[in-house]
Amino acid sequence: MLAYLARRIMIMIPTLVAISAIVFIIIQLPPGDYLTTMIAELQAQGEPVSLDKIQFLREQYGLDRTPIEQYFHWFFGMLQGDLGWSFEFNLPVSEVIGERLLLSFVVAFTTLVFTYIVAFPIGVYSATHQYSWGDYGLSFLGFIGLATPNFLLALILLYFANVAFGISIGGLMDPQYVDQPMSWEKFLSVLAHLWIPVIVIGTSSTAEMIRLLRANLLDELQKQYVVTGRAKGLPPRRLLVKYPLRMALNPFIADIGSILPHLISGSAIVSVVMSLPTNGPMLLRALQSQDMYLAGSFLMIEACLIVIGVFLSDLLLAALDPRIRLHGGATK
């Protein structure tokens, strides 16, 4: 396993270097930079723009350097834990994204737990009771969950929560707690608001997971080893849990790679609709205003999480099912 770990990490390192270069190229692709966007906005408002000041700011922000110099400055800064400077907030990027990262994590993690808690028993029930009324009913609900646009569900739930429970519209806490240090009251307010984005963001992924688990488990339940186990008199629950369920979980483990990046970008459109103080809307704003180091850092953190997620799922799969595929390559 150590050899696997070392080889796998050796693949991650060049991947991340390549991703950092691609991210930097992408955020440099739009014409102009943050200052040209700012000048255009000031001119549109009829405000005078001092060329000397612009030149000063360009030097101050390092925008007068060549793109290659800027890339290496950013890249080596990241290696030292310095994500760069946000032009728009006039603060280090790490300070700008700090609290939002925590709230994004809380929303994403709670959504993940909600998804697993709801999807797992339903998926198992649907597969073990195939073509029953329960299976049809739950499959119908699953299709509704898949088909409903998240932002529409968000608007409906916001209205319902306000009318039925008196919860303030939008945000992740009552307005009086915004920009306040964490306290017990603020924590309770976050909890009272959290269930709406969790349901909104989690519904489609729950429905997806139910369909996936049902299909995988049905495949496994029809295999010969299950029939043999049944014929030998193994108790149904033990037979289900010991082999087919474990095999059916492999796609879930393989899916970790796509779950982790949601911790950062997590449903940007839903966050805009619900005014959630998470990273999604800030990434959108940073891309619009060409706040290159802020946008680049978001994209880089997201890329890192994808690479780490795929790495984790590969490790888990290697530990749980280290099986050769017979059509695969040879061993050395």
Binding site: M1, R323, R325, G329, T331
Partner: peptide, 16 residues
């Protein structure tokens, strides 16, 4: 007897 591969298609791996 385990098989490990770092490739997506699980080819060119090694056994332990």
């Amino acid at each position: 007897l385990s098989f490990y591969s770092t490739r997506g298609d699980r080819g060119e791996g090694w056994m332990q």
